Simulated assay, not measured.
Amino acid sequence: MSTSDSLRPVTRSRLYEQVVAQLREYAEAAGLKRGDRLPSERDLAERLGVSRASIKQAIVVLEVQQLVEIRHGGGTFLRQDRLSAEPVAVLVERRRRLPDVLDAREALETKLAELAARRRTEDDLAAIDAALETMRAEVEGGSLGEEGDRLFHAAVTAAAHSELLAEFMREIAEQIAESRHESLQQPDRPAQSLAQHTRIAESIHAQDPEAAVAAMRDHLEMVRRVRLLNWKPDADS
């Protein structure tokens, strides 16, 4: 390795990243659990010697990861027993690629829904309905419904009987799973997603391609509404 190769840009840790680390340590030391409240922003800013803007940004990072809940006028409360936040760099990278993944999903899955409404067989309908029941049981049991969600979209893909489109879906399966998890973590989202899946299924049952496309597009528009995409990672003070 040459001398010049050993010199790389110096990375500067954002101030709010340090605050996130401090909050994680504080919650653990204080024995905070799900439902417990963090100190106020003013109190945290004074104790940590940083601006309230940095405190706000740190809390937003935790909120994006569904680790805390911000109750307007009530404070910030833990949604988990630990503030085990992902590294901000991982979060930033996921935010960077998510819009492209969602664009690809809309292009592929609206067409798949249309074809499924035209080409579905009785076996295809049975698979779609079984996936809905799996997701319904998961949601009613208090989980996010990720497996039922995965099975539903796989069943719609199979019902389209397009090997090339199915191959495209397989190529981005990992990114789709990531977008699914991001969406289903949003408050009240699992039940909303189940209701929209039901609309898509009804359109496919009715062999109504236009309605199937519209229902799938509405569903994917909802998938786009995630807190992560509203987060500005470079904001700091």
Rank of each mutant, 00 (worst) to 15 (best):
L108P: 02
A45L: 10
L228N: 06
G74Y: 09
G148F: 03
A127M: 02
Q196L: 13
V50D: 06
A155N: 12
P99N: 10
L229M: 13
L32D: 06
L165A: 15
M1K: 14
H161V: 03
S84E: 15
A160T: 08
S203T: 10
A53R: 08
T121N: 13
L15R: 13
Q22P: 02
A117E: 01
I59R: 02
E106I: 04
R47K: 14
R105D: 00
S183V: 00
E17T: 12
V88W: 06
A117V: 05
A215I: 08
P187L: 08
Q65A: 05
A195T: 08
R96L: 15
I204W: 05
R79N: 07
Q186P: 05
E138N: 07
E171S: 14
L98T: 02
P187R: 14
R34V: 13
V10T: 14
R217E: 08
V156F: 05
E122S: 15
L7G: 10
G35L: 11
E109G: 01
E133H: 13
T11D: 15
A45Q: 07
V139K: 00
L108Q: 08
V10Y: 14
G145N: 00
G145W: 00
T198N: 12
I204R: 01
F77N: 03
F77C: 03
Q65T: 01
Y16C: 11
G74P: 03
L112K: 01
R118F: 11
R79D: 05
R224F: 00
P190M: 00
A107V: 10
S4K: 12
A137E: 07
A206Q: 11
G49M: 06
A89F: 13
D43W: 10
H197N: 09
A159E: 03
S84P: 10
S54G: 11
V92H: 10
K56R: 14
L164A: 15
G141T: 04
I176W: 00
E41G: 14
D36S: 13
G142W: 08
R105I: 00
E122T: 12
E133S: 10
S54Y: 00
R170F: 04
H72A: 11
A107S: 15
I200A: 02
D234T: 09
M222G: 09
G142Q: 09
D103N: 14
R94V: 02
L151Q: 12
R24A: 12
E221P: 01
T3L: 14
G74L: 07
L32I: 12
L184S: 03
R52K: 14
L220S: 08
E25R: 11
F168V: 09
R79M: 10
F168H: 10
L228H: 08
R8F: 11
L125H: 14
D234N: 14
V139Y: 01
E114W: 04
D124E: 07
L184F: 06
D208F: 04
K33C: 12
R97G: 14
L184I: 04
D149T: 01
L83G: 03
E69H: 04
A155T: 03
A131Q: 09
V156G: 05
R199Y: 05
V101C: 09
E174Q: 15
T76I: 12
A201P: 04
R8P: 05
V156S: 02
E178F: 02
A89N: 09
R150W: 08
E114V: 01
L44V: 13
Q185K: 12
V50R: 05
R227Y: 09
D124L: 14
R105A: 01
S13K: 15
Q207A: 15
S13I: 08
